[in-house]
């Protein structure tokens, strides 16, 4: 039996580098924790979401997500957050950002509502940066600008101390480590990300056969995203 649930990792990091002031973006992404489906293959759980982001200032991006796969299962799942550019190097080649947000879910069957706060932090590094410096001369629609590599840590928080049948909720914080890449064009970004989800929690003796780079701990998530800035 395979039950497609997923460890709490419904999407990749949102707007690791904050948008510019008044800049908008729409992002779609797919992917999730890798699982092995017996007699089929190992594959990521096909979570998907649509995100809208708005540059409130050069440092602050506000964003909200609608989780489309969850919706198909009758669950209205919404994520929202604010990404803040904490630090940038002088030439803006490196930076650190932090995201404070939340995720909520509500199902249409039993009206169960959940709320999980999130806190993420990312370091990013731009390469091929010269391309962007000479934008006026070299960059036209569809041509590459600076790309971006990032690593970070994310956390989800479970606020309820008691789970089913009165048992104690052991994991209050679910950590994630991620590494990702933004391949940038002038208006488009292709995002790829790999995430180690709950890398300190056992993935054994459960109905799902998670695939993990950390062996019998957690799961490894694989994500693909497309962003359009305007």
């Amino acid at each position: 039996m395979v039950l497609v649930v997923g460890i709490s990792a419904c999407g990749p990091a949102k707007f690791v580098e904050p948008l510019k002031k008044f800049e908008n973006a729409i992002a779609i992404d797919v992917g999730g924790p890798m699982v092995t489906i017996p007699d089929v293959a190992s594959m990521p759980i096909p979570f998907s979401s649509i995100t809208y982001g708005h540059g409130w200032s050069d440092k602050l991006t506000l964003h909200g997500s609608w989780y489309t796969t969850a919706a198909i299962f009758g669950v209205a799942q919404i994520g929202a957050g604010a990404t803040y550019g904490v630090w940038k190097s002088k030439r803006q080649k490196h930076g650190i950002s932090a995201m404070l947000g939340f995720n909520t879910a509500f199902d249409v069957y039993e009206k169960n509502f959940k709320f999980w706060p999130q806190l993420d932090a990312h370091y990013y590094f731009k390469y091929n940066y010269k391309g962007e410096q000479q934008e006026d001369l070299l960059t036209k629609n569809g041509r590459k600008r600076s790309n971006l590599l990032y690593v970070g840590v994310g956390t989800w928080y479970e606020l309820e101390g008691v789970k089913a049948h009165g048992e104690k909720q052991q994991d209050i914080v679910v950590p994630m480590l991620n590494i990702g890449h933004d391949l940038n064009w002038k208006k488009w970004t292709l995002k790829t990300e790999v995430k180690l989800i709950a890398p300190f929690s056992s993935n054994e003796n459960i109905v799902l056969d998670y695939v993990s780079l950390t062996g019998d701990k957690g799961s490894t998530g694989v994500y693909l995203g497309l962003i359009r800035k305007f």
């Binding site: 039950l3 879910a105 008691v162």
Partner: peptide
Amino acid sequence: SVMVQDASILNMPASYFV
């Protein structure tokens, strides 16, 4: 519920899936 919560780590209701 236990099946779902074991797999999701979080205290996630089973009604989200089944």
